[in-house]
Write a protein that binds this DNA or RNA. Structure first.
Lengths: 330, 330
DNA sequence: CTGAAAGCGCTTACAG
DNA sequence: CTGAAAGCGCTTACAG
């Protein structure tokens, strides 16, 4: 520590920086002057090595090219920046995009542990193995979406079952009786919950859920278009379809247009998420607004709280409310 | 270093890990066995402190909610992952979204320097001060877009002037003579170059560039809609408008629809970028395809090359080609 | 081909 | 309120 050109020991310098023990006002001032004159910055790695805190958090998202996730990332970054103003802890976010290839996520987790990220917000499905490695490393976790919900960790999520239920119920209220769905993969969240919500609404209304009406795609526009094409080719074509996200709904919309079906005249379509494109597409998409940025912010706040107070406390959950946005497509 | 339970010195262990000096095959094997049995991982911070290499790169983007940037981020991550397979250097990317607030970027740069990122790819405008701090810190930089092009650093960019020129020329070829534009901010790139390209095309065709036809917005859908509304209210309404990115073009499209103008009948519209939404909007947007993911990949490769070979070599530039995509809006 | 030792820049008991 | 010293886990001359 070169800053003991202020005539004090490095012990003292260390303490004026960390504030870990009282320092007389006089010496504190002296040290601070010298530091700012020299433009002194404590070495990040040396500090991190001692404290075992990296002041970094990892964000792992399912698919960065789905506009939902960038919004979430921004919310997270915003919450972290606010925290920085409050307590000087500049948390930086390392981004991991699982959408670039699924095999990657285990590599990602290794990298997170190696760099001793203080926290990870998981907005992608993690393997049980990845989860337990993270836990063993003592990393604070907050899950986004219900992906990892069963366990005792903090999460923030929308109520995916209700979202699907509300959207489907809206279609029912519009008088539709033959309602199909394009679900996401049911093996993971939010696919499973949204599928459940849809079934619940269908059953409650006493409609018969024809098995051929239940299709699955991979959350992408392309996948949605394919699934929709299958649906539209059915002898008993549904009059409405619930799509578990907007990307798939937009795909379905394009599929409808290309086979000459009018939306909502021939088929009504509803999506989920309310990404920007939902309002821009014609006809504009009726959808369920899920506030991605707010979810990201909430995740950041949950994380900050855990990091500030490491004592084991019961896991916290925040449920973010959604809202049906009625536009032209249904 | 606990791994000298293999009966060798930590010097030797260090060398089998780094490969910095020959080790006999026998001891190497022994050490490696012990390491894998113990699941030993060298301490990231201690290594980084010695080597002054963090194995991290920073990506700073102008606006993460513009779909162009997530695609770019994915390309970058892909190139880095590939590099990891090649030479074991697992570079992780720290994400900084300048769109969350412009004052942030200096804080970001401080954070990058503090964490001694090996490289930064700058897909946002950096202040001269930020640039020189980065340079002083010896950080490898690659600029994306022409933002920082004048200087002697590596960059990858599309030819923004040609992009604008091509798009405008297309409108001219369609017979339009009153062509307006919605440019991005001209104080920075790619705003300046795209404005230049537009002027070039207009002048070449001998059209008179009415000053009221030249408008500026902030790259967002909202900004585009406002600028377009102004244009559409003009006594001599233009018959076509070149928009310097798709987001603004989509905004213009919505503005046209809401005042009852037919696209392309009453106004033709062309954008730039070819984000996903461009194809999904109705009428689908005629635009210039700029391959964001490829640009990100190229940036990653440039960076990897510099990091692998630190000898001062002339700066490298890669110009990515674009392509006019004719759809329905013009 | 291998080791003992010094050093990187910090933090934190332990003493005063 | 302040310091001298040990230690964190690595790397790298310097010697053999």
């Amino acid at each position: 520590v070169v800053a003991d050109l202020a005539g004090v020991s490095k012990t003292t310098v260390s303490h004026v920086i960390s504030g870990n023990r009282p320092v007389s006002a006089a010496t504190r001032r002296k040290v601070e002057r010298v530091m700012s004159e020299l433009g002194f910055e404590p070495n990040y790695f040396a500090r991190a090595m001692q404290s075992n805190r990296s002041n970094s958090v990892a964000l792992i998202v399912q698919d960065l090219t789905n506009p939902y996730y960038p919004a979430l990332a921004r919310g997270l970054q915003g919450a972290l920046a606010q925290q920085r103003d409050l307590d000087q802890h500049g948390h930086v976010v390392m981004l991991f995009d699982a959408g670039a290839g699924d095999v990657l996520v285990d590599v990602f987790v290794t990298e997170m542990i190696r760099r001793r990220v203080d926290g990870v917000v998981a907005a992608a499905a993690l393997s049980a193995d990845a989860l337990s490695r993270l836990r063993a490393a003592g990393t604070v976790m907050v899950a986004v979406g219900a992906a990892t919900r069963g366990s005792d960790i903090d999460w923030v999520s929308a109520d995916d079952a209700s979202i699907a239920d509300d959207a489907t119920t809206y279609l029912i209220d519009q008088g539709h009786t033959s309602i199909a769905c394009i679900q996401g993969p049911r093996g993971s969240e939010p696919g499973a919950s949204r599928a459940r919500g849809w079934e619940r609404a269908i059953r409650r209304a006493g409609l018969d859920g024809r098995p051929e009406y239940e299709t699955t795609a991979d959350w992408t526009t392309h996948g949605g278009a394919e699934a929709a094409a299958g649906l539209f080719a059915l002898a008993n074509r549904p009059s409405a379809v619930f799509c578990a996200n907007d990307q798939m709904a937009i795909g379905a919309l394009n599929a409808a247009i290309s086979v000459g079906l009018a939306v909502p005249g021939d088929v009504a379509l509803v999506g989920v998420d309310d990404i920007d494109a939902a309002a821009l597409v014609r006809p504009a998409l009726t959808t369920v607004h899920v506030p991605a940025e707010e979810i990201g912010r909430a995740a950041g706040e949950l994380l900050a709280r855990r990091l500030a107070d490491r004592s084991p406390s019961p896991s916290r959950h925040v449920l973010i409310s959604h809202e049906l946005i009625t536009r032209a497509s249904a």
